[in-house]
Design a binder for these strands. Structure first.
Lengths: 224, 224
DNA sequence: GATAAAATTTCACATGATGTTCACACAAAT
DNA sequence: ATTTGTGTGAACATCATGTGAAATTTTATC
């Protein structure tokens, strides 16, 4: 599932991308001009950004330039037929491809897939998102509403394990076996203490960790 | 001036690339197989790597896989007409383009230029900047607030490796394997000592090297 | 090839962070 | 009301890292 941001003032274009994107199982977000796009990129991470060049308020190139301060997500530029522009300038901003309007939706999706595949190989970060709770798996760090939260290794491991097995009831035995290791002889209740610490670190999202009385715990949340 | 590495066992191919590359004012380096290429990449930084797939000793894909431990320079793969291979696999390794032999030298150079322009936009310079901490990869030298800092080879390698993998938690095993080599049998704690030296050399930026308790270390900074 | 210098590695100890246990209070189920 | 299970704080045990110094290896110099 990719997170696609399409930026265009034409409703029609956004609609096409949304339709085909969602058909392929991706999540499509929309912005209607550069300003809006920058704002969204400051707050979210996208797999790819489809950006029109000619837009009111803030044009596509300027928007990309601004966006590059926050993310290096791949960018595909849309241009109207006959529009003249400096491709090289785009490359310097990290633009990955150009598509001329009108385009065939199928071709667009193919290019999107190609770009994302290539980008993945460059080592983009893997992460888990649950609204304001964000886990950076490569950096082993956790963010709550954008603020980094310090966690001990066990707390982090516990959180990631539960998040990866979200919406499943996990027994204490299972947690001990998979996180502590098969050779742990300690008390069941050790987990409770770590859950306590984890909850206090999750702050407003402490209720994502649900107690399953008599069983264990469950991580209950939807990836946004 | 780009630094182009062409890897091919065919003398003819290397010659064409060298000729056209130098005509365009670039510096062209040559390797005749994968092993040679890996060795050169470990010691030097290239703007782009032109890599044949079918080669004696070590094939192109395996070579790229190995090279990715040292650099993320863009790669253009050369394949003989009719050769079948998995493009997707290449993308995962960060392969930027494919060209089928025989090719027109002019087209090859055009593609090289396109890739490098794109790569530049992604911020792939021969130097790494983190505010007042500056690493010159060509000169293997480090500057702190403009002043050159003397580092031992291991300290430098450690810093560069961590900087290239910034914001990723790196285990001691990973660091030992990738910097010391797979055949290092020494103590884990060796790293700690080098980290200590590195930190003291980084002066005001010592806190860029973050301890990940129970895991290893992480280089935490944004290239301005 | 011998010697000195530099770099690397090992090691032991102190310190602080983390993990575990436990007792008690409290809440939920029957 | 009784039983059973969980939340919590504090005490305790354990573990990982920072550090200095010594031992070893590598490199440079004569």
């Amino acid at each position: 599932m990719y997170r696609i941001l399409v930026v265009d003032d034409e409703e029609k274009i956004r609609e096409v991308v949304r339709e085909y994107g969602e058909f392929s199982g991706h999540k499509v977000y929309e912005a209607w001009d550069g300003i809006q796009a920058v704002k969204m990129c400051r707050e979210n991470e996208f797999s790819i950004i489809i950006m029109d060049i000619m837009m009111p308020r803030l044009d596509g190139f300027s928007a990309v330039k601004e966006i590059r301060k926050y993310t290096n997500a791949p960018v595909l530029m849309l241009s109207a037929r006959g529009e003249e522009y400096d491709k090289l300038f785009g490359f310097e901003l990290g633009v990955d491809d150009y598509v001329t309007k009108p385009f065939s939706p199928k071709e667009l999706m193919a290019r999107i897939n190609a770009i994302i595949s290539r980008d993945k190989g460059r080592g983009n970060k893997k992460q888990l998102d649950f609204n304001g709770l964000n886990i950076d798996l490569d950096g082993r760090s956790v963010y709550v509403d954008g603020n980094k939260v310090d966690m001990t290794p066990k707390e982090y491991d516990l959180l990631v394990y539960m998040a990866k097995n979200k919406n499943r009831a996990l027994t204490r035995e299972q947690l001990l076996r998979d996180i502590w290791g098969y050779d742990f002889y300690g008390d069941d209740r050790t987990i409770d203490t770590h859950i306590k610490m984890l909850r206090s670190n999750l702050g407003p999202y402490r209720n994502y960790v649900v107690t399953m009385r008599g069983i264990g715990y469950k991580f209950e949340a939807e990836n946004e």
